[in-house]
Measured scan of single mutants.
Amino acid sequence: KAKLLVLLYAFVATDADTICIGYHANNSTDTVDTILEKNVAVTHSVNLLEDSHNGKLCKLKGIAPLQLGKCNITGWLLGNPECDSLLPARSWSYIVETPNSENGACYPGDLIDYEELREQLSSVSSLERFEIFPKESSWPNHTFNGVTVSCSHRGKSSFYRNLLWLTKKGDSYPKLTNSYVNNKGKEVLVLWGVHHPSSSDEQQSLYSNGNAYVSVASSNYNRRFTPEIAARPKVRDQHGRMNYYWTLLEPGDTIIFEATGNLIAPWYAFALSRGFESGIITSNASMHECNTKCQTPQGAINSNLPFQNIHPVTIGECPKYVRSTKLRMVTGLRNIPSIQYRGLFGAIAGFIEGGWTGMIDGWYGYHHQNEQGSGYAADQKSTQNAINGITNKVNSVIEKMNTQFTAVGKEFNNLEKRMENLNKKVDDGFLDIWTYNAELLVLLENERTLDFHDLNVKNLYEKVKSQLKNNAKEIGNGCFEFYHKCDNECMESVRNGTYDYPKYSEESKLNR
Rank of each mutant, 00 (worst) to 15 (best):
T282A: 12
N141K: 06
T43V: 13
Q203T: 05
R224E: 05
T18D: 00
F133L: 04
W192H: 05
Q67T: 11
L272I: 14
G261L: 01
L176G: 01
G261I: 01
T247H: 15
A105G: 05
F11V: 14
P81L: 07
W192K: 11
N103A: 10
A2G: 01
L176Q: 01
N220A: 14
L166E: 01
E136M: 12
R223W: 09
S85T: 09
L166G: 00
H142K: 01
F11Y: 05
E115C: 06
Q120D: 07
N39I: 03
S52F: 12
R241W: 15
D113Y: 08
S126N: 07
K156I: 13
E228P: 03
G252I: 00
K1G: 07
E202D: 08
C20I: 00
Q204I: 15
A231R: 07
V188N: 01
C20G: 00
H196K: 01
L117K: 05
Y9S: 14
S157V: 06
Q120P: 00
H24P: 04
T74Q: 07
Y23V: 13
N211E: 15
V6E: 08
I19T: 00
E102Q: 10
E115N: 01
Y114V: 06
G240M: 11
K175F: 13
T254R: 10
L60F: 06
W139S: 00
K186C: 10
P65G: 12
S218M: 09
G109Y: 09
D15F: 04
P233I: 13
T254D: 05
H142G: 00
D110L: 13
I132P: 02
S199Y: 07
L36I: 09
L121H: 06
T43R: 05
V190I: 15
V214R: 02
A230R: 04
P266C: 04
V190H: 05
V149Y: 11
I229V: 15
P99L: 12
P65Y: 07
G62C: 05
R241K: 09
D17W: 10
S150A: 15
R224S: 02
K56D: 05
I264T: 03
L272T: 10
S101L: 00
R90I: 13
T254G: 11
S125M: 06
Y107C: 02
G170I: 04
D253P: 00
Y268V: 04
Y9A: 14
L117H: 02
E37M: 03
F130E: 09
R118L: 06
G109M: 12
A271I: 13
T29W: 15
H195R: 12
K184N: 10
P108Y: 04
R274Q: 11
Y245D: 00
S138E: 02
H153N: 00
A217Y: 11
E102F: 06
G69H: 14
F270M: 11
K61D: 13
I95S: 10
Q238A: 10
N80I: 08
N243E: 08
C106G: 01
N220T: 13
R90G: 07
L249I: 14
E277F: 07
D201H: 11
